[in-house]
Each structure stands twice: as structure tokens, then as C-alpha cells.
Design a protein around this nucleic acid. Structure first.
Length: 749
DNA sequence: GTTAGAAACAATCCT
DNA sequence: TGTTTCTAAC
């Protein structure tokens, strides 16, 4: 029992109590992942449970990957049969096997937010809905919430009777669902909903999985929505060995349908549940933890618990208010630079957290100019970029001919001279004949009044048919290469020659390497398998530990992570808590923001800095914001830095006509970096790349190279340092800069 | 049918 | 400020 000796008594109880329902209320940094992994190990090694019967379910691939790794390390034999997966991947796996019992094809496609929007637009047009009055997005929101709550189109319709607006939504929902079925596609929410439907309608399938998953563990239980709740309830229905781990204080996904009652009422649904609280925090210093406790204490209706730690008090929390967002960013970047220079931290120890993705831009500019390696998590997903979606649409079309959306996306990309008028005729014909869009294309010659366009369509169809016939013989990567060749997609971009086109080509190269990586990681790689993986990756999944770059992300993305040195930026009323929650008439909205703040504070291990700005540009307008109310909930004695004067201070003054640079010096505290803010030279076009390949340089001393931001220049020096190169370049426009090759992405010209 | 430039418009957070 | 949609001219 050696492994378990490192656990504290509460953790041990959670690990050893294997039979029946268990609720583990695990505060931030209290070692819940350790509990989960050790529990899996205990089941297998001490209780003799077949690994095959053990399931651990999470929300992100990253969390699942970490858990898998740790279980593999601890379990001697058979750990690979433990089912460790996310909710969505789990459901996809089940549906790929059995969804034909619900009348879908098992090669269904998964629609992302973009696809949903395109589809919805189409539906609104068809139902004669004025999208100026009723927005597509609001319909999608309504549908998504309905699905989170397991409300079917039929039930929605019943409930809507008598209410004009609701009836309209019901009609849209019905149409939307019918269209998905026609395209043999599922949206994200459907993955869960359809699995629950399957279990409810097919006792044989349910029984099959109940038998398999005799011991179930659920991570981040406070984030589950109603559909996920039923999914778990059904699965655990037979053996009832269900262990859920969560923290009501970290419930921050109400907007996504998370139902906090799932965790708050667990004991009512499972009266025999054992409840275990983990309250010792191993992550943060005393000061940081006190701040977190005092902030969250302002919420009402929580499960009583208070974190404590044996760690030392540590540094005070550094607070600073700055004139504007630029100075805030400058200070933070300067502070990181300083701490790294002093050897206190590496770049990889530092994280900047903010409320909205838009806030990342200012930091990015500073990092680029300062030549500090950084990585932004979130924002536009790699797989949502135009060029990537185009190529994926080709693969999808080859994989599933019923996915009209994919076909429409690429039929005229690259330009084939097939225009809207022609497509409308094809569409009409398809509807008339009850064909899918693609099948209508195949019969182009039959379609009246389509004329010469049918020749162009024929060429496209032939291409797709040829590719389909090759699926069996070619690897996915070969398939992709051939698509790129035959369509001339990259060639067209090369011809264009703009910076943007070059960036796109880089992305396409990265897509190719991702395909190759997929083929290497999988025993039996398939086209469908790749598309599936792509549909389910989140940006956070690609964050790898041990890489030395500063990480920037939203507070939401940061949940579950920890960093030695954390910055909470933009702590202003109106930003955090957000404007939306301040004007909301539901007071619980503010509480959710406060929980988000709690999550943010508890990410920090040793150093925490809180910053805000007096004025800030939001969508071209200057806003003047007060210091966040959450900051005021932290007592002064825990704060260091330039604090005090701010609290009594009234609103910021009128903006003078001066530029930011000039007003800067008078308020700028501590670390005034020498380089004043430089206006950006070009449109920022940096793409954070996740490739980890060992780099080789395509240029040497004296070569001409191009940098995304600095333009062209001449290489004057290359110094090898570890697994990277430090390159010195004399740029035509901005002078000499030193940078790391892996980060600067220099291109030989 | 395609393109570029102008006008309109937008309010977090995400698997 | 940044992105999407509309319009007009090729």
C-alpha cells in the first residue's frame, strides 16, 4: 500500500471508499487529480477490478491525457483498458457504433459553430425569418440550451404553444434538427443528447455499457449539464459505483448549460452517498489562499468549506492601476522580463489571465516587440481558420457525401466559375427529387436550365469520385496532398504572394503535420478518425507542460491549471465583472463572476499580480472603468504594490489631448521599461504555432529573411543555444533585433 | 461571376 | 477596433 501513504487521510478515504456513490468536494489545489488516479489504481491493484470496468471521464482532452499518463505510470499491467476520455469523445465512440439504431449513419459528421451558423442562416431564409429582427445566433443559443436540458423539438413545440416568439423558435428548432439529420450530421450538443436517447430507447445497448463501466469517476462534476447528468445516471444505474469530484466554488459554466444542482443535490439523488471534503491546499502560498477565501466568502448558498494550507505566507499580492491598457501590458511584460532576468522564473512559469479574448491583443504586441516567447490559448481555433476549414471540407465531402454543408463550401473554392445562380438551381432540383445536394450535382446534366455550368460541375464531381475510390489505398496525408495538388489550393496562395497568403500556407503545412502526427499515433488511422479528432480538439489541449513560453488565456481556460507566477489583468468593473453581469437583474450572475475570480486567484502558486487600467479602448471607444469590486474584497494587508491611493480616488480625469506615451511617466510605477510603446508597423498576423519539431534553419549568416512584423532584413549572427538558435537580424525598417529562431518564424527570401 | 472598398455592426466566457 | 455584409464596378 506504499503508493497511498503519500495521501492525506481525506484523500485516502476518497480512494478507499470504492463501492457505492461518492461525492468528493475538492477545493482548488487540493489534489483531486491525485485522488482520481490513485482511486483507479487502487481499484485495479488492490480490489482486483478488471481495468476494463473502470471509467474516468473529464471535459477536456488535456485533462484526460494527463490522467491517462498518470494511471499508466502507476498501474503495472492492463492500464490501457481503463476508459479515460472526455464526455464528447466517449459519446462519439458509442455513437459510431450504435447510432444506426436511431436512424443515422455511423459515419456522421460533427458540425462546429461555424457550420451551425451557415445552416441556421439557410433555415432562416427558408422560413422567411428576418434575421435583422431575430438573430441566427439567438436561435442557436435557444436550441443549444434546449439540448443541454434534453428538451426535444417536439417537447419544445408543446411547451411553446400560445407564445408567438417561442413558437417561432420551435419551428426553427424542428427544421434545424431535420436538416442535421438530412446531412447525417450532429452538432456538439447532439453528441450527448443522442447518446442519452440511444440509452433510453435501446435497453440492450445500455445494459452493454452498464456492464462495462462498473466503476465510474467524473471529474469537474460542477460543470456537467442536465444531459450529461442523465448520461452518467444511466451508465451508473446498474452498479451505482459512481465517484464524482468537483467544487461548487469553481462552477463557471452556467452559460454553457452547467447545472449547479447536479453537485448541490447529489446527496438527494443518491441518499447513500458518502461525502468527502478535501480542504487542504497544496498549491498556493498563505496570502494567495487567504485572498481567495475572502473573495469567495461574499457568495451565498455555497457548500460550506474553507481551504487551508501549511505553505508559508509568501509574497503579498501585487496590485497596480495604470493609465491605460498599453501601460498595463507594458508593466506586465516588463515584470516578466525582470523576473526571468533575475533568474526567479522561466517564461514557462508565467501566465497572464484575462476575462475576454480581445484583451490578448495588447499583450501579444508587447511580446512580439520584446521578443519574448508566448502562446495564446483560445481565440480563433486553428481548425476554424478559412484555409483549414476548406481543406477539411474536401476531406469531409469525400468521407460523407451527405454533408451538404461541406460540399457547398468547396464547390467553388478554388474558383471554378460555379456561381450562386447555378447552385440555387441545383438546390431546387435536389429538393424536388429528394436528393442530397451532392447527389444532385452528380446528375447535373439532368437539371434543366443549368446549361454549360454542368460541364464545370461534372469536373468537380469526377474529382471527388476519383478521390473516394482512392480512400482505401491512400493514407490520409496522401489524400490531403493530392487534394492540395489537384485543386491548386496552395499554388493559388503562392501566386498571391501577400503576407497573409504566406501565413495561410504555413497553416496548411501545419495541418499536414497534424495529419502525419495522427497517422503515427494511431494503430489504424482512417479518414473518419482524423476528422473526428479534429472536431473534438480544444485549443487548451495543445498546451504542453515543460515548454518555455508565457501563456496567455482567459480565466475560463485557466481552470484546472496552475502557474508559479500569475497576472490577473483588466480587473475593472465592466470588464471583470463583465458589463453584462453588472446590468443583469439576476444577482447570481455576479456570483458566477466571483467564482471565476476565485478560480483566477487560485491558479497562482507563489506570485500573484492584479492589474487594471483607468481608461481602455473597447471596440474603438474609450471606456473609463473603476477598479473591480472583487479587488476591494481583498483586504489591504494582503496587497502590495501601488495600491492605496487608488481606493479613495474618484473617477479618472478627462483625457487630455496628449498621447499615451507622454502621460505615462507620472503614474507608471515600479518597472518603467525603457522602450516606450511603439505603434505597430503592420497588421498583426502572428499565429501561435504548436509544433514542437526540432528546428533546423533554412537560412544562414548573410541571408535575407522576412519577419512577420519587422519585414525584411539581413541575418548578421546566429548563435546556437540548447535546442534553439538565437538569430540576430538587421532589419531594413526597424534596425537590429535578436530573436529565437523557433519563435520568430523567419522566412528566407 | 468576381472583386474591392464602403458601410454597418458588434457586448463575455467554451466542449 | 475588427469583422461581416452590402454595393458597385469590372
Amino acid at each position: 500500500m506504499r503508493v497511498y501513504d503519500n495521501l492525506n487521510p481525506m484523500q485516502q478515504e476518497a480512494v478507499f471508499h470504492t463501492e457505492g456513490p461518492v461525492l468528493v468536494l475538492a477545493g482548488a489545489g487540493s489534489g483531486k487529480t491525485r485522488v482520481l488516479t490513485h482511486r483507479a489504481v487502487y481499484l485495479i491493484e488492490e480490489k482486483g477490478v478488471n481495468p476494463w470496468h473502470v471509467m474516468a471521464i473529464t471535459f477536456t482532452n488535456k485533462a484526460a491525457g494527463e490522467m491517462r499518463e498518470r494511471i499508466d505510470k502507476l498501474v503495472g499491467y492492463g492500464s490501457e483498458s481503463v476508459w479515460v476520455s472526455t464526455f464528447h469523445s466517449t459519446c462519439v465512440r458509442i455513437l459510431r457504433r450504435y447510432i444506426d439504431r436511431l436512424g443515422y449513419g455511423t459515419n456522421f459528421t460533427i458540425y462546429d459553430a461555424d457550420d451551425q451558423k451557415v445552416l441556421m442562416k439557410d433555415i432562416c431564409k427558408r422560413l422567411n425569418i428576418d434575421t435583422k429582427v431575430y438573430k441566427e445566433k439567438s436561435f442557436l443559443g435557444v436550441i443549444s440550451s434546449a439540448k443541454d436540458e434534453l428538451v426535444s423539438p417536439e417537447e419544445f413545440t408543446l411547451r411553446a404553444a400560445g407564445d408567438f416568439a417561442r413558437e417561432k423558435q420551435a419551428a426553427v428548432y424542428r427544421e434545424y434538427q431535420a436538416e442535421l439529420r438530412k446531412n447525417n450530421a450532429l452538432d456538439f450538443d447532439d453528441l450527448i443528447v443522442k447518446t442519452v436517447e440511444l440509452f433510453q430507447s435501446d435497453a440492450e445497448v445500455l445494459e452493454n455499457y452498464q456492464e462495462r463501466f462498473r466503476y465510474i469517476m467524473v471529474d469537474e462534476y460542477q460543470d456537467t449539464n442536465t444531459a450529461q447528468f442523465y448520461l452518467i445516471k444511466l451508465l451508473a444505474g446498474k452498479y451505482r459505483n459512481l465517484c464524482v469530484v468537483g467544487d461548487d466554488d469553481q462552477s463557471i459554466y452556467k452559460f454553457r448549460g452547467a447545472n449547479i444542482k447536479n453537485i448541490l443535490n447529489f446527496e438527494e439523488i443518491y441518499p447513500d452517498a458518502r461525502v468527502i471534503k478535501l480542504e487542504q491546499n497544496y498549491r498556493s502560498t498563505g496570502n494567495i489562499l487567504s485572498a481567495a477565501n475572502l473573495v469567495i466568502a461574499n457568495n451565498v448558498g455555497r457548500k460550506a468549506k474553507e481551504l487551508w494550507t501549511e505553505n508559508e505566507e509568501g509574497e503579498k499580492i501585487d496590485f497596480g492601476q495604470y493609465e491605460n491598457g498599453y501601460e498595463e501590458a507594458e508593466h506586465i511584460v516588463g515584470d516578466i522580463q525582470k523576473k526571468v532576468r533575475e533568474g526567479r522564473y522561466q517564461y514557462g512559469d508565467c501566465a497572464i489571465l484575462y476575462r475576454t479574448n480581445a484583451q490578448s491583443r495588447l499583450f501579444e504586441e508587447k511580446f512580439v516587440v520584446s521578443n519574448i516567447p508566448y502562446r495564446i490559448v483560445g481565440g480563433v481555433n486553428f481548425y476554424a481558420r478559412k484555409e483549414i476549414k476548406d481543406l477539411l471540407a474536401y476531406l469531409k465531402t469525400i468521407d460523407n457525401g451527405m454533408d451538404d454543408l461541406a460540399v457547398r463550401r468547396i464547390i467553388n473554392v478554388p474558383k471554378r466559375g460555379i456561381g450562386a445562380a447555378t447552385l440555387n438551381r441545383v438546390q431546387a432540383y435536389a429538393e424536388e427529387q429528394g436528393l442530397s445536394f451532392y447527389n444532385a450535382l452528380r446528375m447535373a446534366e439532368e437539371i434543366p436550365s443549368i446549361g454549360k455550368a454542368s460541364i464545370k460541375i461534372r469536373a468537380f464531381v469526377n474529382f471527388i469520385q476519383t478521390m473516394r475510390s482512392k480512400v482505401e489505398f491512400l493514407d490520409v496525408s496522401q489524400l490531403l496532398q493530392e487534394i492540395i495538388e489537384e485543386t491548386g489550393y496552395v499554388a493559388e496562395l503562392e501566386a498571391e504572394g501577400s503576407d497573409e497568403a504566406r501565413a495561410r500556407i504555413e497553416n496548411i503545412d501545419e495541418l499536414i503535420s497534424k495529419v502525419v502526427a495522427y497517422e503515427e499515433s494511431e494503430e489504424t488511422p482512417t479518414l473518419g478518425g482524423f476528422l473526428e479528432e479534429v472536431a473534438l480538439v480544444a485549443d487548451i489541449d495543445s498546451l504542453q507542460e515543460g515548454s518555455d513560453y508565457v501563456v496567455l488565456m482567459t480565466l475560463h481556460s485557466a481552470k484546472g491549471l496552475e502557474f508559479p507566477n500569475v497576472y490577473l489583468a483588466g480587473m475593472e468593473d465592466g470588464i471583470f465583472p463583465s458589463y453584462m453581469t453588472i446590468i443583469s437583474d439576476d444577482p447570481s450572475d455576479i456570483e458566477e463572476e466571483r467564482r471565476l475570480c476565485y478560480v483566477g486567484i487560485t491558479r497562482a502558486m507563489k506570485d500573484l499580480s492584479i492589474t487594471c487600467a483607468k481608461q481602455r479602448m473597447i471596440r474603438g471607444e474609450t471606456q473609463y472603468n473603476k477598479v473591480s469590486r472583487f479587488v476591494k474584497e481583498i483586504p489591504r494587508n494582503l496587497l502590495g504594490g501601488m495600491v492605496r491611493q487608488q481606493e479613495t480616488r474618484a473617477e479618472a480625469q478627462e483625457p487630455s489631448g496628449q498621447s499615451f506615451r507622454q502621460t505615462a511617466s507620472k503614474v507608471k510605477p515600479v518597472f518603467s521599461t525603457r522602450n516606450a510603446y511603439q505603434p505597430k508597423a503592420y497588421k498583426s498576423n502572428s499565429f501561435a504555432s504548436s509544433s514542437t519539431d526540432k528546428i533546423t534553419l533554412e537560412y544562414t549568416n548573410g541571408d535575407r529573411v522576412r519577419h512577420m512584423k519587422f519585414g525584411e532584413g539581413t541575418v548578421t549572427q546566429i548563435v546556437e543555444g540548447g535546442r534553439d538558435f538565437e538569430v540576430t537580424v538587421d532589419f531594413d525598417r526597424v534596425g537590429t533585433k535578436k530573436m529565437f529562431a523557433s519563435f520568430a518564424k523567419l522566412k528566407k527570401v
